[in-house]
C-alpha cells in the first residue's frame, strides 16, 4: 500500500469521525449512567429497534460473559424497549428518531458514543440478535480473553456471523421473552462459506451460509457479508466503516493470518431467523432503511412468500464452541 492510499484512508477515517461528531445531535439522552464506567470496564455498544422481546436474554447473556456497561441507541422503538432499557442499572440509553439509513445503519451514532466513552476500553459492538462465542467461553470470562489479547498486543478480535435457523417453518416455534433463541434456531451451515480479500481495507469478505444458499443462489455477489470485527480495544481515533464488518485504521482488519497459521477468533451466533422475522422483514421492507436499497429484505420477502425451510439434511445442530472450532469456523489460535 502506497503513501497516497494510506493518506486517503486516513482522510476517510477523519471523515467518518467528523460525520459521527455531527450526528451526535440526533441522539437524545434517555438514561446516561456513563459516569459509573470504571477504567477497566468492558463495554457493549448496540443499536436496536423494537427488540424488546429479545432484550432480557441479550442483556443477561452478556452480563454473564462479564460486560460491565451497555451503551445502546434506540431507533424510535414503539414497543417500550427504550423504557425497559432505561430501567436497567448497567445500561445507558440514547434515542433517535432520525433516519437509520442516513446514520449509515447506526454506525455514525455508535462511532460517536465510542469516541466519547470507549477510549481505552475493550468494547464489543453487536446487535441484539448476535451472541458472541469465543474460545473457552464456557470456562473463561470475556475478561480472560481481553487480558490475553492485551498481553499479546492484539487490538481487534474477529467473530464471523453465523446464521442460525430453526428446523421447519419459521413460525412453528414462537419465541418467548427471556428464552435462549438458540434453543429454537439451533441449526447452522458448517462449510459453505467463501471468502476473498478486500485489498483496500485489508479485511476478508466472507459470504455464504443459509442466506446465500436459500435467498441468493442466483445472485451470490449480493449475499450479505458475514465477516465481523466486533471486539476492539478502542481508541477515540478509530472508526467503524460499514457495520462492524471493517474499521479504520485498516491494521485492525488484519484479524487473519496470511502465512498458514491461525489467529484466535470467535463466532457471532446470529439468531435472526425466529418467528419474529417474517413481520420484521415486511416492516423493514416498507421502511426501506436497510443496506443497498434493502436488497436483502427484498430477497427475503420474495422467498418468504413460499415459507422456505432453511434447514437441510446437512445442517449442523449447535452444541458448543469446541464443535465450531473443530468445524473450522473459529479458532483458538495460540490461546490454550
Amino acid at each position: 500500500m502506497g503513501v497516497w492510499q494510506s493518506y486517503r484512508l486516513r482522510l476517510q477515517r477523519k471523515r467518518w469521525l467528523i460525520r459521527a461528531f455531527r450526528k451526535r445531535r440526533e441522539l437524545s439522552r434517555v438514561a446516561d449512567r456513563t459516569d459509573t464506567i470504571r477504567p477497566n470496564d468492558l463495554l457493549l455498544f448496540s443499536t436496536q429497534r423494537n427488540e424488546k422481546i429479545r432484550l432480557p436474554y441479550f442483556l443477561d447473556y452478556y452480563r454473564d460473559q462479564g460486560i460491565n456497561h451497555f451503551l445502546i441507541v434506540d431507533n424510535d422503538s414503539t414497543d417500550g424497549s427504550a423504557e425497559y432499557l432505561a430501567e436497567q442499572p448497567d445500561v445507558s440509553v440514547w434515542t433517535s428518531s432520525a433516519s437509520y439509513k442516513r446514520s449509515r445503519f447506526g454506525v455514525d451514532w455508535l462511532n460517536w458514543l465510542q469516541m466519547k466513552h470507549a477510549h481505552g476500553h475493550w468494547c464489543l459492538t453487536v446487535d441484539p440478535d448476535e451472541f458472541l462465542i469465543y474460545p473457552f467461553c464456557d470456562t473463561r470470562p470475556l475478561r480472560a480473553l481481553t487480558d490475553w489479547l492485551d498481553a499479546s498486543s492484539i487490538k481487534s478480535f474477529s467473530a464471523m456471523l453465523l446464521d442460525m435457523y430453526p428446523k421447519g417453518r419459521l413460525d412453528a416455534h414462537p419465541y418467548s421473552q427471556g428464552q435462549n433463541p438458540i434453543e429454537i434456531a439451533g441449526w447452522f451451515d458448517s462449510g459453505n462459506y467463501s471468502m476473498s480479500r478486500n485489498r483496500k481495507f485489508g479485511n476478508l469478505w466472507i459470504q455464504g451460509g443459509p442466506r446465500a444458499r436459500v435467498f441468493f443462489p442466483d445472485q451470490p455477489e449480493n449475499a450479505p457479508a458475514l465477516n465481523k470485527v466486533p471486539l476492539v480495544k478502542w481508541n477515540k481515533k478509530y472508526a467503524y466503516v460499514s457495520s462492524t464488518h471493517m474499521l479504520l485504521p485498516r491494521g485492525l482488519n488484519q484479524v487473519y493470518d496470511e502465512w498458514g497459521g491461525e489467529k484466535a477468533s470467535g463466532v457471532l451466533l446470529h439468531a435472526k431467523f425466529l418467528d419474529t422475522f417474517t413481520s420484521k422483514a415486511a416492516e423493514e421492507l416498507s421502511r426501506g432503511q436497510h443496506y443497498s436499497a434493502s436488497v436483502e429484505y427484498k430477497a427475503y420477502a420474495e422467498s418468504l412468500k413460499d415459507d422456505p425451510d432453511l434447514w437441510c439434511k446437512w445442517s449442523e445442530k449447535y452444541i458448543n464452541w469446541r464443535q465450531l472450532e473443530i468445524l473450522g469456523l473459529m479458532s483458538k489460535g495460540n490461546w490454550a
Binding site: S158, A159, M160, Y193, M195, L204, I206, N227, V255, Y256, D257, G260, G261, E262, K263, A264, S265, G328, L329, M330, S331, K332, G333, N334
Partner: peptide, 14 residues
Amino acid sequence: RRTRGRPGLYMQSR
C-alpha cells in the same frame, strides 16, 4: 496451530 494451522482450512482467521 498459530504458526502452521490446519491444512486445507480457509476461515476468518486463516
